[in-house]
Design a binder for these strands. Sequence first.
DNA 1: TGATTTGTCCTACAATGTGATAGTAATGGA
DNA 2: TCCATTACTATCACATTGTAGGACAAATCA
Lengths: 108, 108
Amino acid sequence: MKKSKDYIGEFEELVLLAIVGVGQGAYGVSIHEAIEDASNRSISTGALYTTLSRLEDKGLVRSWEGEPTSERGGRVKRYYKVEAAGKKLLMEAEASRRKLRGLKSATI
Amino acid sequence: MKKSKDYIGEFEELVLLAIVGVGQGAYGVSIHEAIEDASNRSISTGALYTTLSRLEDKGLVRSWEGEPTSERGGRVKRYYKVEAAGKKLLMEAEASRRKLRGLKSATI
DNA sequence: TGATTTGTCCTACAATGTGATAGTAATGGA
DNA sequence: TCCATTACTATCACATTGTAGGACAAATCA
């Protein structure tokens, strides 16, 4: 876990939000699906796993392996959970935008 | 004006929001100040101008030179305004996040 | 066994984010 | 008048993020 900067990138934020949103049982495929649904853009799985691993390096998410299921091809899943540090950054990102939107001339 | 992607980066979004928020008379220094105030992090001017120029290349903002003022050192300012395409991307970014936050388990 | 399915991970490159630093035009005062 | 000072914009080079395209792994089904 590397020391993290004090903010997160655009895609990193989507990934964190997706993990929180999916909740229990968030893993690669379900996270991927949540992001594609919400953003209407297609995300390569490579992009997702790379980002997940960077987020973990920075201590913003934690992951662990589950049990293999008995579905066909039911390979072991890696589950993800957002750490407190990750939630804090999510809130800060939102707060910054809210402040800017709150300026007198903001109309968006 | 290059063809833009269908989303904007984290800092780009702050810059766009700041321009909208500052409104009439948004220029380098006032935008810089708005972002630092809202985000509680210090932004180098280089980062800002580089980003402004990229946003303009992508057609998301427009800029024009103002008149020199009569203040000491009152050099010509370059004013900025967010174009419709920029506002659209701002709304889409917000919409994606809102959808993710709206998932059943979202608690943030 | 081997084709198929569900999943994860790696690699290489593009785009974005950043500090450091330079440059330009105006003013004010010795 | 000329230079220090002020207000601002701009460029460079490098770090960090974002991304596609496969490769790889393990389980099931026939």
